[in-house]
Amino acid sequence: MATTAPPPTTTTSFTFPREYHFPPFFSRQTQATTHHAQCSKWSALIRAYSRAHKVFKLSLIDALDGELFHNAALHKRLSLEDARDMLDFMCREGRAEWIGAEKNVAWIWWRSPDEWAAAIADWVDQTGQKNSVLTLYELTESEATISQEFHGMDPELLQKALSILVKRGKAQVFGQEDQQGVKFF
């Protein structure tokens, strides 16, 4: 689960939104309107952060100590319960998906599988690699994709995206286990 934890030090300078520096943002709001605003702002923050740090799978337990949920300057952190609530809210929005019933790890859909599938197809189209066979490793880890958002993508997520393309008849996945390859049409 190397990908679930946010990278410890990144060169990217992620600018947190204003609310991140506002102490009440880390306390659960009781008033309905305020709570809804709080949830949607957290949802936006989590997505923006995940995108900036290429987080596809978020493990709550690990992330709670990360800078996303813990503002060290304010000495404020979101409690596990509240963080779970925020992710629940994102699930309802279609922006996240729990992995497993115990609700500890979740997909963060800063791009949904559909969008990922489209992005991959576009890239293949643009680079003229239709009808050629690529390994999955090549797709996410090669230098050719380094400028693409799906570079370093979680293999599981890649499988999901590719399966969508397969269903549409735009690709075919073959091989087994670590040796999988994909052919785009």
């Binding site: 990217t12 300078s13 992620f14 600018t15 939104p17 936006a44 923050l45 997505r47 923006a48 995108r51 900036a52």
Partner: peptide
């Protein structure tokens, strides 16, 4: 948030 993403 958008600006951040674009910036990144």
């Amino acid at each position: 948030e958008l600006a951040v993403v674009v910036g990144v």
